[in-house]
């Protein structure tokens, strides 16, 4: 096993965009994005259930794509864009996905929820009108132990309708 040198190791620094804002952070260089978000930046909205890529609870959007923050070195995030659940709402309002999840029982214990929300957002950014099968597929990397997923699908579908409505009223 590795020898103990962690107490003497120097920290690393990166600058990246977190939820639309530039942040500088210094951290122990062995840390993953998950650890830096939670431990060095106080963004505890992103959860973890395995730290091995096996549950999906740590998903965030990296440059717009859903990835597992437990398997991304923080060192690899310099200059990149990260979106977490903390950055989902805009202008003081919840994102339609958040509203729908809250109203339709899609969050029971709420532990898988942040990662599912950002993953669903990435889906809708790419495909504003996914059908049930596409939603199922897009969320197939996020385990939820509470809901049985069905109310999650319904909430995503409700959000789709709401977003479409908003877009129509804007144009």
């Amino acid at each position: 096993m590795a020898t103990l040198s962690i107490e003497s190791q120097k920290t690393s620094q990166i600058r990246f965009t977190l939820n639309g804002e530039e942040v500088d952070v210094s951290f122990a260089p062995y840390k993953t994005l998950l650890e830096v978000l939670r431990e060095d930046l106080g963004h505890t909205g992103t959860k973890h259930g395995c730290e091995l890529g096996e549950c999906g609870a740590c998903a965030v959007l990296l440059d717009g794509k859903a990835v597992l923050s437990c398997l991304v070195l923080a060192l690899e995030c310099d200059g990149r864009r990260v979106l977490t659940v903390e950055g989902l709402g805009e202008e003081g309002k919840l994102h339609p996905l958040q509203d729908a999840f809250a109203d339709l029982g899609a969050a029971q214990c709420g532990y898988c929820t942040p990662a599912i929300l950002v993953t669903a957002k990435a889906l809708l950014d790419q495909n504003p009108h996914p059908n049930r099968d596409q939603i199922r597929e897009a969320l197939s990397g996020n385990l939820c132990r509470c809901t049985g997923y069905l109310q999650i699908f319904e909430a995503v579908e409700a959000a789709i309708v709401k977003i479409a409505g908003q877009n129509n009223s804007e144009t």
């Binding site: 431990e39 505890t44 989902l88 919840l94 996905l97 109203d103 029982g105 709420g110």
Partner: peptide, 21 residues
């Protein structure tokens, strides 16, 4: 009805034990 703790959950603000620093 929206459950009382729903907003905290969908915004990632629910404080689970490991979220305490």
């Amino acid at each position: 009805r929206r459950r009382v703790d729903a907003r905290a959950k969908v915004t990632g603000q629910t404080r689970f034990a490991d979220d305490i620093f």
